[in-house]
Design a protein around this nucleic acid. Structure first.
Lengths: 232, 232
DNA sequence: CTGATGTGTCAAAAAAACGTAAAGAGGGTG
DNA sequence: CACCCTCTTTACGTTTTTTTGACACATCAG
């Protein structure tokens, strides 16, 4: 549905054949993939790469797959899909109760696996909400998620270009951005030399967001170089 | 295993035999059960009883099970487990993408089903559940479950597209949705560039729901970007 | 002092985006 | 078949945004 693509998937699987198979299938659907062939390594990879989804085989050479799940669940809430040759009900129940989110028996269809992955990722994305990307300096507040800008407690309306310029500055807050960098970023590469646009829109932003536009507190000019957004 | 028990389960299943079977199995594990034998009734039960989990058979006499899922997903985030005699991969993918959380093929083991139910309930409880099936801003009220819309206390009739557009906005209330997002969500991906439709239907919604359509309080335009439904 | 350059401001012109009404096209239902 | 409801499409006036040009000012070098 949404473009949850390019999610990072950790595959813990010892059979080379299945790895190759999934590498192709997942790659074709835009997922990024990390592979492990052992449970131990899988746990390390999970901790270091922080994948969005883990697919784990139950029949690993070193650890039992269920132990991998338990160890993972000690700290991670990442969705886990079990892949297994064992179709025994007992195994399924154990794995699911250990913390797995789904269980797919081999041989499986790629389509089904992908669909179940989408379900798992759907859960993950709806679960983690408390991420409120909002930037603040002084009494200037930028709420990226809601696309809202405030000075003090008054909301200020920005046009698309104004907003894009502002967010670019926010992204590199504290650092100087050259005219060319800003123009390429906001208007696109062909406009890299239209320094005039920048002055007009910078003035616009100051007029809307600075208490005293003539004496900017936030939108600072670096003469001959570019602009900088003050940070704390 | 865990005491996720006394959860309320809605079973939508026409085969009496399976109903009897599950009634016993779930009862023995402490679940409370509501039964429906048709899709229509199932939807009504879901709206009135607000179950913690829905188990739905794909082969219902009236509606297609997948349609039941879609209708349910228009307003509810309750976990849905599909039970089906059809083991075709195509069916699984369709059901999962329609919003189901799991798919169990008949014949199935009770143990496995119970384990998958525990997984589903685990998800539901971890995901914060401020899931009131009714949304309110000012004197605009949207009852997702009953598919009804009110301004003040007068009910307003909406066409299917109008309603879907409204619910999409409701789902992301406060956030700006781009034209493309709305079009893909409401009309489907192929319509992502028909920004036209949006204006027509937005005007429609405002005419029906705003006190002064020319001065919208709820349906706000972000010129060059998209639309936003005011929140609080 | 003077002219060149980089910068800030303003406002008109041009372009793009938006709102609205209304006509045409299906698609069901009685 | 005729009717009603909804969706699609077109047309046109209005609003908002972007672009453009003109000008003032400051700084700095010659």
């Amino acid at each position: 549905m949404t473009d949850n693509e390019e999610a990072l998937v950790l595959l813990i699987e010892d059979e080379a054949q299945i790895r190759r198979f999934l590498r192709a299938a997942l790659g074709a659907h835009g997922y990024r993939l990390v592979e492990s062939t052992t449970g131990e390594d899988g746990l390390v990879q999970a901790a270091t790469r922080l994948p969005d989804l883990v697919i784990v085989d139950l029949g690993l050479p070193d650890l039992d797959g269920v132990d991998v799940i338990r160890k993972l669940r000690e700290w991670a809430s990442v969705p886990i899909i079990v892949l297994s040759a064992r179709g025994q009900e007992r195994d399924k129940i154990t794995a699911l109760d250990a913390g797995a989110d789904d269980y797919v028996s081999k041989p499986f269809g790629v389509g089904e696996l992908l669909a179940r992955m989408r379900v798992a990722l759907r859960h993950a994305s709806s679960a983690k909400e408390p991420d409120q990307p909002t930037f603040t300096v002084g009494d200037l507040k930028v709420d990226l998620a809601h696309r809202k800008v405030f000075t003090g407690d008054k909301e200020v309306h920005l046009t698309p270009i104004e907003f894009k310029l502002l967010t670019t500055l926010v992204r590199y807050a504290g650092k100087v951005l050259t005219h060319r960098q800003l123009l390429k970023e906001v208007w696109g590469p062909p406009y890299a030399d239209q320094a005039h646009y920048l002055r007009v829109y910078m003035a616009q932003l100051r007029r809307k967001l600075e208490a005293d536009p003539a004496r900017p507190r936030y939108f600072l000019t670096e003469p001959g170089v570019g602009y900088r957004l003050a940070s704390e």
